[in-house]
Amino acid sequence: MYNSIVLVKQVPDTANISGKVMKDDGTVNRALLPAVFNPEDLIALELALQVKEKYGGKVTAITMGPPRASDTLRECLFMGADEVYLITDRKFAGADTLATSYVLSAAIQKIGNFDLIFAGRQAIDGDTAQVGPQTAEKLNIPQVTYVEEIVELNEKRAKIRRKIENGYEVLDCALPILLTVLKDSAEARPFSTKKLLAYKNAKSLMDIEKMVEGNSLLYADKLVQEFKDRGLFIPTITADDLDIDTERCGLKGSPTKVHKVESVILAGGSHIKIEPTKDGLGSLIDQLMEDHIFG
């Protein structure tokens, strides 16, 4: 039996950014971008589910983010996660990777009882690949990044294949360990129809508070109990639930700060137009020869 915790993230769909979502000042209007399940995290969850199927154990998915990130947790339930947690607090907002891993590691310690932690190699909004290793360091456990395959689990040790420059290596690792996985290491399973029907109404406290808003007939406390009874309550972890120093969380706890953001604007029109004719190309080649570009 091997218990897994999977770190997932809801991200803006940066792969499909068009001019429309760019604001005049060059920043991205996140509100106009659809939020998606970070692609490599989906694979992380898939690998954790495969471990469960092969060796037994439990899969717990956690995410840190704003209340709407419960969307991503519901999707984890649709795929087969046994348990999910939403880690959310205004104090966590604006965190860089160091502050994020600080909170994540505290939440993981609170959840406890794990052999493996899975995460995507990186998230498509920042592409930093830092949160995984930093979380492992804070938990004082080893890490394997760029995982291609879990070859074998045996006697609380793992044999893992990872990508290296121009090749791969196979590692023998003591557990617990944190793994960050590559997109090609598996294919994510589709949502189970049964689970989708079962969990589509799963809600976090914030989701429920939103339902109650402006409806005097509903009471949040009562609803929470009702959702709990039906197994549809997504538990949240806030700063108060964790043994942490809030000075090390969120923007305040982030050593790196964004100083300036510019949109990528092309100079345009500054190039010399060359006619695609024999003469045009000939003069271009002359010019390049004069500039000693060839040879």
């Binding site: 920043t27 991205v28 920042g126 592409d127 700060k257 100083h259 953001v261 510019e262 949109s263 990528v264």
Partner: peptide, 18 residues
């Protein structure tokens, strides 16, 4: 000044560690 593309390369961010 740590200058890097962000958001799938659609913006260039300057990051500092003050």
């Amino acid at each position: 000044l740590q200058i890097r593309p962000a958001f799938g390369g659609n913006i260039i961010a300057t990051i500092i560690t003050p």
